[in-house]
Amino acid sequence: MEYTILDVETNESFNCREDEPLLSAMKRTHKGPIQYGCGGGGCGVCKIHVLNGDFICFKKMSRAHISSEEYADHIVLSCCIKPTSNLIIKKFSQD
């Protein structure tokens, strides 16, 4: 199964397999808000906002970077999630 991920800021889309971390799909396709450090949920550099769609969080995300309020708002670390539907995303920004 493959899902379509749309980055609203660049208006580009790319595919992500259901068993593929979102960050890996961005690295594979060179699309989306690619920014990363540790790849392990610890550094917070890959933080994004999922505006629409469903996903699973397959790896624990550091509380230092994703508060429970943010998680409820679907602000997540792209190295820790896999899509379970098409997604609309954008790079995380403070406002």
């Binding site: 450090g37 540790c38 790849g39 392990g40 610890g42 550094c43 550091s62």
Partner: peptide, 8 residues
């Protein structure tokens, strides 16, 4: 390098 929890 980073270990699996993101510590360098």
């Amino acid at each position: 390098f980073w270990e699996p929890s993101g510590n360098r």
